[in-house]
Design a protein around this nucleic acid. Sequence first.
DNA 1: GATCCTTTGAAGTTG
DNA 2: CAACTTCAAAGGATC
Length: 434
Amino acid sequence: MKWPLLDVPSSATVKDTRSPSPAHLSNKVPVVQHPHHMHPLTPLITYSNDHFSPGSPPAHLSPEIDPKTGIPRPPHPSELSPYYPLSPGAVGQIPHPLGWLVPQQGQPMYSLPPGGFRHPYPALAMNASMSSRFSPHMVAPAHPGLPTSGIPHPAIVSPIVKQEPAPPSLSPAVSAKSPVAVKKEEEKKPHVKKPLNAFMLYMKEMRAKVVAECTLKESAAINQILGRKWHNLSREEQAKYYELARKERQLHSQLYPTWSARDNYGKKKKRKREKQLSQTQSQQQVQEAEGVLASKSKKPCVQYMPPEKPCDSPASSHGSMLDSPATPSAALASPAAPAATHSEQAQPLSLTTKPETRAQLALHSAAFLSAKAVASTSGHVGSQPPLLSRPLPLGSVPTALLTSPPSFQAALHTHQALPVLQAQPLSLVTKSAH
DNA sequence: GATCCTTTGAAGTTG
DNA sequence: CAACTTCAAAGGATC
């Protein structure tokens, strides 16, 4: 069966400079502690390119493919079992969806809480409904032998998580208690982290490779590179991560039905908060943003460029920032597209709204701005066109153009409609997508 | 030692 | 509902 959304030459799958399992190629100690010899994503979804080529989509994905449209449909929560071994029988056979985090000796995807191995899924234990939905193995902590049972969900982090002066209200039950009790509650309550999004998963996987290829280690720089690489990914490659992220979210919601991203709000101190706010205020004025950028004497992206190795020069980070939203492409490519949340399909390009981005935009190219205007008028707005007829993998093109020809060629492989964009800094095209 | 930087995406909040 | 904000990872840089 062909990969539903991707009528792409199989070559496109391998065109990317990335290796199927970069970690393997890394001759350095991975910054990201991957499981031994294991591709981080492999256990969860056999998404190594080998299995993910359009010609041979993961067998387990088949059931999710809508026979009518050929488009993968979003699995209903009740259909998660294929990925998430919730049944007792499956537990021991199928790796935990996040199993790739498990063997990690260092910090897993999410930090392990002290004692976490004894209470892998605190949330489950606290939630009766979950108990009924998950296998005893997952609920009961005492199964050290089983791959999944003794594994804390990576999202669970030490309760020692830095707490703000305690926003005295989390849940009604908690708020009713005394401040002390509340504090205890919070301390007791493990910090459940947000599930990683597609890009985060990608970064997690690729960081080590990039670090190995480049001489830099600074995450900010690495992330710029990764951001560019992300855009250079083909649709199907990105789809892997979108799908993976979607499943992560689903698993996460299953494990922590009551969890909300809000729970973690304010738990990170933002020293820069004020600065950001001020920028936000000014972001409506590019000029002002420019001023901010200048005054901030921000480190030039160039600084993040590998001293010697070319890598994917993050220098044009402004480029990657311009285009950003792989979201549309996500919707396009991701097998989960149909199931994609509205945000996945029509995610506002938050990035492009970032003050700094704007500033850079303004600073770097008036042409870009004009191009943007042009692009925006020719953008694809409104209802989503048929997946296959969609103009592009919005996210990838711009970067590709801005960077290496091979990348662009790769993009071309996946999109017949690119030529027009060739001459433009398309990033912008994306912006109009919503 | 805490926070920033930097990226994209998801989800929250705000107006 | 659009726009904005926060957090997720990561590790060197900065405060």
